[in-house]
Nucleic acid binder design. Structure first.
Lengths: 214, 214
DNA sequence: ATAGCATGATACCCAGGCGTAGGTTATAGA
DNA sequence: TCTATAACCTACGCCTGGGTATCATGCTAT
């Protein structure tokens, strides 16, 4: 058991953070390992000591993101409340995650498209499977909650699988236009998340009666 | 005035199509000019005869996409109907465009993030400005329509600028999950577009009364 | 038919980037 | 104090890929 001021996992975490920042800015193909090293304030050597290849590094960043997502989603899903409450909670959590961990979120967005095409080694394909499974698990949870909501008459009848796509898409699209500002606070982020989630749940068409949305 | 079986613009168009396909698959940085040439069934020479650089080619594909978008949007916007009709029409048109011209749509999505960071020459920056202006014009039209809708009591009061983002984001996200199938028809695409647009306008929460959505 | 131009192919140069081999420092244990 | 190993750095090999310079081919007009 090693007890040093800097454990191995610390080094890995730092590299993941730096990689996320670099990948966010220039994308996977457009980022060189040297650029990651520069963000890290280090050299390639350190990175290749901890990661086998550029692809592995990218996949690990992606997996890290998805793991964080699924944990947040499952926590809300297992909690109390109506399906509508849970749906709202999950979407709000995800929106907040995107804002607070923008580099990781962007990597996840780019990584989704990278499925296939690349990734040669069996080990990388295993990580890829893991990532895809995490994503599918998250989507399945949402679909299930929506089905419950429809059954209970809380939600409009629809094809949940088709609705989940634009729902998550709208949140993921935040990575394109949202830019953190110095004056941002947890409260202001919460407000933005609420605005978006409220729209995603209630739409924009005015109700026929005078009922106001929550 | 030259009249030959193959005009110069034909050559350009073919290259743009091939480039869109290649860029869609591997992204800007991940696509080599040789790959575009291979898709085209030609060699680099042809491409560099028509385009000054890889970046210019990419930007031209992007501009082509945005031009098509804005034309479609303006046509609907200038037509008859309530703001709600127009909004619905524009979103449906865009969704259809994405499905029918998926490679171009994907380039546009990636290109949005590429603003800044790259593009050295003044000429390229001019094209970039043009593209950004097209996008802003499109968004402004949508914002204006939403404002009108709110004023007329057709739409729920909200911040139009904040609502346009998830709206278009949900549509752009189609480039991630939508894959054309052989059995797809204009009708099936229309049905899918309608489903999405209906969700984006009406949300998913069931109305308090028994009113069914259109 | 032939000069001239539009169009396309081929060969090449060189910068940049992935991955590696081997060296260097520091910490832990004997 | 001495050695082994973990953690990191340096220098390099080699290939990919953007861009160019040059050559080949056909179409148009006189």
């Amino acid at each position: 058991m090693k007890v040093s001021v800097r454990s191995k996992s610390d080094g890995r975490k730092e590299i993941l953070d730096a990689a996320a920042v670099a990948f966010m800015e220039y994308g996977f193909a457009g980022t060189s390992i040297d650029m990651v090293a520069e963000v890290l304030g280090s050299t390639k050597g350190k990175i290749y000591y901890h990661f086998k290849s550029k692809t592995s590094l990218f996949l690990d960043v992606h997996r890290e993101t998805m793991t964080t997502y699924i944990e947040a989603v499952e926590e809300v899903a297992k909690g109390p409340g109506t399906p509508l409450d849970k749906l709202s909670g999950i979407l709000t959590t995800l929106a907040t995650q995107v804002m607070e961990r923008l580099p990781y979120a962007k990597v996840a967005v780019e990584g989704v498209d990278m499925h296939m095409s690349r990734s040669t080694t069996p080990e990388q394909r295993a990580v890829l499977r893991e990532i895809i499974d995490l994503r599918d698990r998250g989507e399945a949870i949402l679909v299930r909650i929506i089905e419950d909501g429809i059954e209970q008459g809380l939600l409009r009848p629809c094809n949940p699988r088709l609705i989940v796509k634009p729902m998550l898409g709208a949140l993921n699209w935040m990575t394109v236009w949202y830019r953190p500002r110095p004056q941002d606070t947890p409260e202001s982020r919460k407000a933005l998340a609420d605005t978006l989630v409220n729209y995603l749940l209630n739409g924009i068409v005015a109700p026929a009666d005078g009922r106001a949305s929550a």
